[in-house]
Design a protein around this nucleic acid. Structure first.
Lengths: 339, 339
DNA sequence: ATTATCTTTGCAATCGATTGCATAAGTTAT
DNA sequence: ATAACTTATGCAATCGATTGCAAAGATAAT
């Protein structure tokens, strides 16, 4: 079973009676090697089943051809589709993708980043955790000038590229939509302010109401962790108010679903009694009844673009490229829960 | 900005006036180094901000502390939750996870595997593509005695560990459930026979009907790619039969959802006119109306277990551990679409 | 014929850690 | 005091590629 001795460039060199350096250059299609030798070497490499040892090459060249990705949870659709986009592009450029998840914990996030650093990834694509209120762990990369790219959720104190969704305008559009369909009392279930995305959604909501002079009653702004359970509680508090809302902008689809389930349980009609809008267009959102109005974030495209940007930066690591903040538009999808 | 010269064990050695080998051993808590020296070295390492270069260590030790994962698509919930489980366990053992997706294409799968091999991953966890009818690319690993572990979808000609879901019994249980609720004409929308999972589900279906002596009318067994579109077409063909089914076991939840949408469009009542059962318990399945009966596969747990098994094998690469086929039970979840 | 130039290849150091073997120092037994 | 072990540390080779510099050979220019 141990018949497979690994073939190295030295074996090829000996076989071809040339030096290892020539073999190395030939395999990399270096101009300095004659066309003829290159052909011979490449032919022999195939013949002998040569497989480059990426580790050795990376050690020497100080590039790993690998990008690290950190997301809160891999199994959330938005993130898995972003990873899918990252992987698809990276693959075309010969980069591998190491993933890790922070589980929305700062400590875990810091550990992931340290591990990725130790593995000498060439760049880091990250969507920070809900707890990240500190940038010390990120400095491991930024201080060493290793490219970081934030997507969706970013750390404002680190200078770097960012690919974001236009949460402010989305929040504004959602709220305006609710106003236009006739809602008079519009509440919002927000997420932790620490994260730009939730703050922006909330600000969009506030601005939209303010622009048309609708005041926000006491208790109409819930701030939660946006889990299924917290969503249910928050919605229940809203509906127990003396003057409950007739339209609720939920910070994500999960809480919107909680709200929907609450309505089913207590015989509230959606959207007649209360209109609902979520955020993210999870796979379930179009399938529920009534189907859920929401905002579709281009996860795959963001990931693809993120990979393009960071690989471009990696490949031009010595040029000064100004940092970019790309804000992608998101699409308001009006479905039956707010029609 | 270039203030960060990388600290190596040689820098530590010089600083402490000892040899690099001692530093290396001290950092790895080797017995041969005195307790006192170990402390001093570890202290200094922290003080100087030393970060081990995993690449160098791996090159020498011929282990990469990395496992490669290949799945058809990262953004499918079953796979992303499995990856989540893999990553969670691997992380506790200091392993990194490189992921790649085959997009259900054999060629892409082969390329992914080659890349993972070149990166010298210590093991491969894979769920094969729908097209994989050949094992040449997998031999790259198996011939070299590098651990492979299949989960969910496997290649029967490669000897290795497997972690599977009990698709046969699940198919059997689903069909029996439909029989018991009173369905007389039960159809099945199956996936490609090439994959064990779809063949087993179908066989369970056939066996269940056979056991109670129900014959299967002409045209009641559709074989498709199980996409949304193909599902819709297959279901439409079924319902256009002179004697359409009153119960359909759909090969996955996606096609079950297609069926549901078809029923809504053509005013068929579910489950009164036709009962539906899917497979996989996608996030949308519990949320749709009527909620979808299905089989819940333990994705996260499978991934976690897969990581445990393969890392155990990696850590005992020189012992002969017999290959294991673990078949996990899956849970039939009866919801409104077939109650 | 001689020098200059270009092309093609090889030598040897290097990346940063690991590890078998040798050695020095310390301890115990004879 | 010497042999026989232990214990702690260092030397130097090694993993498999990359790369600056030198050199050899071929060709062109003077």
């Amino acid at each position: 079973m141990k018949k497979h001795l690994e073939i190295t460039i030295h074996h090829l060199a000996k076989e071809l009676k040339i030096s290892a350096s020539t073999v190395s250059r030939a395999l990399n299609d270096n101009d300095r090697i004659s066309e003829e030798t290159r052909k011979r070497v490449q032919q022999k490499a195939i013949e002998m089943g040569y497989r480059p040892n990426v580790l050795a090459a990376n050690l020497r060249s100080k590039r790993s051809m690998t990008i690290g990705v950190v997301v809160p949870r891999i199994d959330r659709y938005f993130f898995s589709s972003a990873i899918s986009g990252i992987e698809d592009y990276a693959w075309t450029k010969g980069f591998s993708v190491i993933i890790s998840q922070s589980n929305d914990l700062l400590i875990k996030e810091a550990n992931c980043i340290r591990t990725l650093y130790n593995n000498r990834v060439d760049g880091l694509i990250i969507s920070i955790s809900m707890q990240t209120d500190d940038d010390k762990h990120l400095r491991l990369f930024s201080d060493r000038n290793i490219p970081i790219l934030f997507f969706d959720r970013f750390c404002p104190t680190i200078k770097s590229d960012r690919i974001l969704v236009d949460d402010f305008n989305s929040g504004y559009k959602i709220t305006t939509h609710l106003i236009e369909r006739g809602c008079k009392r519009i509440a919002h279930i927000a997420g932790p302010e620490l994260l730009n995305i939730y703050k922006d959604r909330k600000d969009g909501y506030l601005k939209a109401l303010n622009d048309v002079g609708i005041p926000i009653p006491e208790g109409y702004l819930e701030v939660t962790g946006l889990t299924k359970e917290e969503g249910k509680q928050a919605f229940s508090r809203l509906m127990s108010l003396p003057n409950p809302p007739d339209g609720v902008f939920c910070g994500n689809d999960t809480t919107a679903l909680s709200a929907l389930e609450y309505c089913q349980k207590y015989q509230l009609r959606v959207p007649e009694d209360v209109a609902l809008v979520g955020f993210s267009d999870e796979p379930f959102s179009s399938a529920v009844t009534p189907s859920l109005s929401t905002v579709k974030q281009p996860g795959y495209e963001m990931g693809f673009l993120a990979a393009q940007k960071i690989i471009h930066r990696i490949e031009n690591i010595n040029s000064v490229i100004p940092f970019e903040e790309i804000v992608l538009p998101a699409q308001l999808i009006i479905r039956n829960s707010s029609i």
